[in-house]
Protein backbone atom coordinates (compact mmCIF):
# COMPACT_ATOMS: atom_id res chain seq x y z
CA UNK A 1 0.00 0.00 0.00
CA UNK A 2 1.49 3.36 -1.01
CA UNK A 3 1.59 6.32 1.38
CA UNK A 4 -1.35 8.00 -0.36
CA UNK A 5 -3.52 4.92 0.10
CA UNK A 6 -2.45 4.66 3.73
CA UNK A 7 -3.41 8.29 4.23
CA UNK A 8 -6.83 7.70 2.63
CA UNK A 9 -7.41 4.66 4.80
CA UNK A 10 -6.36 6.52 7.92
CA UNK A 11 -8.62 9.48 7.00
CA UNK A 12 -11.54 7.11 6.46
CA UNK A 13 -11.05 5.42 9.84
CA UNK A 14 -10.71 8.78 11.57
CA UNK A 15 -14.08 9.78 10.10
CA UNK A 16 -15.64 6.52 11.32
CA UNK A 17 -14.27 6.99 14.83
CA UNK A 18 -15.32 10.66 14.88
CA UNK A 19 -18.79 9.59 13.86
CA UNK A 20 -18.94 7.02 16.66
CA UNK A 21 -17.64 9.63 19.08
CA UNK A 22 -20.18 12.22 17.97
CA UNK A 23 -23.09 9.82 18.14
CA UNK A 24 -22.80 8.82 21.75
CA UNK A 25 -21.19 11.64 23.69
CA UNK A 26 -23.14 14.54 22.32
CA UNK A 27 -26.15 15.24 24.54
CA UNK A 28 -28.65 15.73 21.70
CA UNK A 29 -27.37 12.69 19.80
CA UNK A 30 -27.34 10.57 22.97
CA UNK A 31 -30.93 11.51 23.75
CA UNK A 32 -31.92 10.70 20.19
CA UNK A 33 -30.18 7.32 20.28
CA UNK A 34 -31.69 6.38 23.64
CA UNK A 35 -35.16 7.35 22.42
CA UNK A 36 -34.77 5.48 19.12
CA UNK A 37 -33.60 2.34 20.92
CA UNK A 38 -36.22 2.61 23.67
CA UNK A 39 -33.52 2.85 26.34
CA UNK A 40 -34.07 4.57 29.65
CA UNK A 41 -31.22 6.87 30.68
CA UNK A 42 -32.02 6.81 34.40
CA UNK A 43 -32.10 3.05 34.48
CA UNK A 44 -28.76 2.84 32.62
CA UNK A 45 -27.14 5.35 34.99
CA UNK A 46 -28.59 3.66 38.10
CA UNK A 47 -27.25 0.25 37.09
CA UNK A 48 -23.96 1.79 35.98
CA UNK A 49 -23.39 3.69 39.21
CA UNK A 50 -24.27 0.59 41.21
CA UNK A 51 -21.52 -1.28 39.35
CA UNK A 52 -19.02 1.57 39.69
CA UNK A 53 -19.72 1.65 43.44
CA UNK A 54 -19.17 -2.12 43.68
CA UNK A 55 -15.89 -1.79 41.82
CA UNK A 56 -14.75 1.00 44.14
CA UNK A 57 -15.57 -1.15 47.20
CA UNK A 58 -13.76 -4.12 45.68
CA UNK A 59 -10.76 -1.93 44.95
CA UNK A 60 -10.78 -0.51 48.48
CA UNK A 61 -10.92 -4.02 49.91
CA UNK A 62 -7.99 -5.13 47.73
CA UNK A 63 -6.01 -2.07 48.80
CA UNK A 64 -6.65 -2.82 52.48
CA UNK A 65 -5.62 -6.43 51.94
CA UNK A 66 -2.44 -5.34 50.20
CA UNK A 67 -1.64 -2.94 53.04
CA UNK A 68 -2.20 -5.68 55.59
CA UNK A 69 0.01 -8.07 53.65
CA UNK A 70 2.64 -5.41 53.36
CA UNK A 71 2.51 -4.66 57.12
CA UNK A 72 2.86 -8.34 57.95
CA UNK A 73 5.73 -8.71 55.50
CA UNK A 74 7.65 -5.75 56.94
CA UNK A 75 7.08 -6.97 60.50
CA UNK A 76 8.50 -10.42 59.65
CA UNK A 77 11.42 -8.82 57.85
CA UNK A 78 12.20 -6.72 60.97
CA UNK A 79 12.03 -9.81 63.23
CA UNK A 80 14.43 -11.79 61.03
CA UNK A 81 16.75 -8.79 60.81
CA UNK A 82 16.84 -8.35 64.60
CA UNK A 83 17.35 -12.05 65.26
CA UNK A 84 20.37 -12.00 62.93
CA UNK A 85 21.67 -8.84 64.56
CA UNK A 86 21.41 -10.32 68.05
CA UNK A 87 23.38 -13.36 66.93
CA UNK A 88 26.28 -11.08 66.00
CA UNK A 89 28.77 -11.23 68.88
CA UNK A 90 30.02 -7.74 68.11
CA UNK A 91 26.59 -6.20 68.50
CA UNK A 92 26.13 -4.00 71.56
CA UNK A 93 22.62 -2.81 72.33
CA UNK A 94 23.74 0.18 74.50
CA UNK A 95 26.06 1.42 71.73
CA UNK A 96 23.36 0.91 69.13
CA UNK A 97 20.83 2.79 71.29
CA UNK A 98 23.17 5.77 71.58
CA UNK A 99 24.26 5.85 67.94
CA UNK A 100 20.69 5.51 66.61
CA UNK A 101 19.22 7.74 69.34
CA UNK A 102 16.65 5.14 70.34
CA UNK A 103 13.79 6.36 72.49
CA UNK A 104 13.87 4.26 75.62
CA UNK A 105 11.10 6.03 77.56
CA UNK A 106 13.44 7.03 80.41
CA UNK A 107 14.22 3.45 81.21
CA UNK A 108 17.65 2.52 82.38
CA UNK A 109 19.31 0.58 79.60
CA UNK A 110 20.77 -1.83 82.15
CA UNK A 111 17.25 -2.88 83.15
CA UNK A 112 16.41 -4.16 79.66
CA UNK A 113 15.82 -7.90 79.45
CA UNK A 114 16.70 -9.86 76.34
CA UNK A 115 13.04 -9.76 75.31
CA UNK A 116 12.85 -5.96 75.88
CA UNK A 117 15.87 -5.48 73.63
CA UNK A 118 14.36 -7.63 70.93
CA UNK A 119 10.98 -5.84 71.08
CA UNK A 120 12.66 -2.41 71.00
CA UNK A 121 14.83 -3.34 68.04
CA UNK A 122 11.95 -4.92 66.10
CA UNK A 123 9.92 -1.72 66.59
CA UNK A 124 12.88 0.38 65.47
CA UNK A 125 13.54 -1.67 62.31
CA UNK A 126 9.84 -2.00 61.53
CA UNK A 127 9.56 1.80 61.40
CA UNK A 128 12.76 2.10 59.40
CA UNK A 129 11.66 -0.48 56.80
CA UNK A 130 8.21 1.10 56.58
CA UNK A 131 9.79 4.50 55.90
CA UNK A 132 11.98 2.99 53.20
CA UNK A 133 8.95 1.28 51.67
CA UNK A 134 7.00 4.57 51.60
CA UNK A 135 9.98 6.32 50.07
CA UNK A 136 10.19 3.68 47.32
CA UNK A 137 6.47 3.96 46.59
CA UNK A 138 6.64 7.75 46.34
CA UNK A 139 9.68 7.79 44.07
Amino acid sequence: MNSNSKQNKSDFFKLIVADLEFSHCNRQESDRYLADEGLNRDSIINEGMKRVKQMRLKMQSLKTQEEMNSTEYIKNKAIVWVEDLLKNVNFSFPEFAISEKLILHNRNIESFTEEDIKVTLVKYFYLKFTENEDKNVNE
Partner: peptide, 21 residues
Protein backbone atom coordinates in the same frame (compact mmCIF):
# COMPACT_ATOMS: atom_id res chain seq x y z
CA UNK B 1 -17.27 13.40 40.79
CA UNK B 2 -20.39 11.26 40.48
CA UNK B 3 -21.54 13.49 37.61
CA UNK B 4 -18.31 12.74 35.71
CA UNK B 5 -18.82 9.02 36.29
CA UNK B 6 -22.43 9.23 35.13
CA UNK B 7 -21.51 11.08 31.93
CA UNK B 8 -18.69 8.68 31.20
CA UNK B 9 -20.88 5.65 31.86
CA UNK B 10 -23.63 6.92 29.57
CA UNK B 11 -21.17 7.58 26.73
CA UNK B 12 -19.61 4.15 27.10
CA UNK B 13 -22.98 2.44 27.34
CA UNK B 14 -24.27 3.99 24.11
CA UNK B 15 -20.96 3.31 22.37
CA UNK B 16 -21.06 -0.36 23.37
CA UNK B 17 -24.78 -0.78 22.74
CA UNK B 18 -24.27 0.50 19.23
CA UNK B 19 -21.31 -1.80 18.60
CA UNK B 20 -23.17 -4.83 19.89
CA UNK B 21 -26.44 -4.15 18.14
Amino acid sequence: TNKEWEDLYECLYIFTDKLLK
